[in-house]
Structure formats: structure tokens, C-alpha cells
Computed example of a mutant assay.
Amino acid sequence: MRLFLAIELSDAVKNQLCAAVDTLRANARSGNFTRRENLHLTLVFLGEQTRLDAVKTAMEEAAGNSFCLILSGAGTFRREGGDIWWCGVEKSPALAALYASLCAALRTRGFLLEAREYRPHLTLGRQVRMQPGFDGEAFAASISTAAMEVKAVSLMQSLRVNGRLLYKCLYRTKLKDGEAT
């Protein structure tokens, strides 16, 4: 199973992000845009895994306090085949601590994780080629700040169903004093 840990987003945040995706789509020549049901914040990519119990245990061990996640702005990761457009995440000591705690708990259980720096962002579109004259800076400035309380970490499975990418929640660990579900 292809797995990752993520923060699932509130409906209000998804509404704002969908408006941004719609603006990108309307001004793009081409691209693959993130569907509403797939919007999330990736914490840790695990890749192909079968050790679900070890991942769940690591999640429970790493779960700390709930915190406020603030999204604002946008940008791109330049790619030859088209850019990745993303919404930004404001720096958060609580998010950084959660990420570090999850990575430590997973590595203790023998999981090999990416060594690159964690750059939290929410992907709005991949392989995007914008129409000439599109003002990316104005677009980034137009994205309203959105905030939500992060109350859980989710273990997600990445699937292809009828050619479409689908993310399925397999397990959720509540932050703070909550119990795993």
C-alpha cells in the first residue's frame, strides 16, 4: 500500500482552496488540478508499506497537542513539464514539533524517510502551464488567510480508481487528550 501521514482539512479551508484552484484552472493552458476530496497537508510520505500496526503505534506515540494551522499565500515549484502550484503554510512551532515527533517515532520503528527539509504546502495543481500574462504574484496575494484547528493526524492510502487519484483515510489519531479512531 502507498501510504502517507497527513492533516485533513476543514470544509471551510477546502472551500477557500477550491476557489484558488478554480482561479488557476481558469487561467491555465493545461494542468492537473487537485480535487476537493484530495486536498490535505502531507506530513510524512511513507511510500509502499505493509506495516500498518507499526505506523499506527508511531502516530499514537507522536501525537501531541492540537494547534492552529494558518494557510496564506501561494507559489510554485518550477518543473520542466509544468509547475506545481501550492498554497503556503505559515511557520508553526507546533507543526514542526509534530513533524519531528512523527519522523522520530517512525525511524525508531525502522522506517526509512526522506532526508530533505520539510516544506509544508498544499498542492493546488501539478504540471500547470499558465496562460501568457498570468500574474502569479497577484494570485498569491489574492488568497485569503485561512486558519483551522488541527485535532488529528491521519494515515492515508493513495489509490488509483478508474484512472483517478484517490486518498483514503485508514486510521486517525486525535491530538491532545483524544483517543485513536
Rank of each mutant, 00 (worst) to 15 (best):
A54C: 03
H40P: 02
F77P: 00
R79S: 13
T76Q: 15
E61I: 04
S66T: 10
E61N: 05
K91N: 14
T50M: 14
R79V: 07
Q49P: 00
S72V: 01
M59K: 10
F45W: 06
G47Y: 03
A74L: 07
D53L: 13
L43C: 03
T76H: 11
L52Y: 12
R78D: 11
L69C: 04
A58Y: 04
T76W: 04
E80S: 12
W86A: 07
L52I: 15
A54T: 01
K91F: 11
L43N: 01
E48W: 05
A62Q: 11
A58W: 02
T42K: 05
D53V: 09
E60L: 03
N65H: 15
L71E: 10
G88F: 12
E80P: 00
E61R: 11
T50R: 15
K91S: 14
M59V: 12
G73V: 13
I70D: 03
R78V: 10
L69E: 03
V44Q: 05
E80Y: 06
A62N: 12
T76D: 09
F67N: 10
F45L: 05
R51L: 05
E48L: 09
F45R: 08
H40K: 08
I70G: 00
A54I: 00
F67K: 07
K56W: 06
D53R: 11
G88W: 06
W86Y: 15
V89A: 12
L43K: 01
A58E: 05
E60M: 05
I84Q: 01
R78H: 10
S66A: 15
A63Y: 11
L69K: 05
E90D: 14
R78Q: 12
V55Y: 05
V55T: 04
T57H: 04
R78M: 05
G81D: 13
L69R: 08
G75Q: 00
A63D: 11
A58P: 02
T76G: 08
A63G: 10
A58F: 04
R78L: 09
S66V: 07
G64L: 04
V44L: 04
G88M: 11
G88Q: 06
S66M: 10
G82W: 09
Q49Y: 00
L46D: 09
S72W: 02
F45K: 05
V44Y: 00
R79Y: 13
V55G: 04
G81K: 15
T76K: 14
G73S: 10
K91I: 04
E61T: 11
H40D: 04
I70L: 01
T57F: 02
L43D: 01
T42E: 08
K56P: 05
R51V: 01
E48D: 14
L43Q: 02
T57W: 02
C87L: 07
M59T: 08
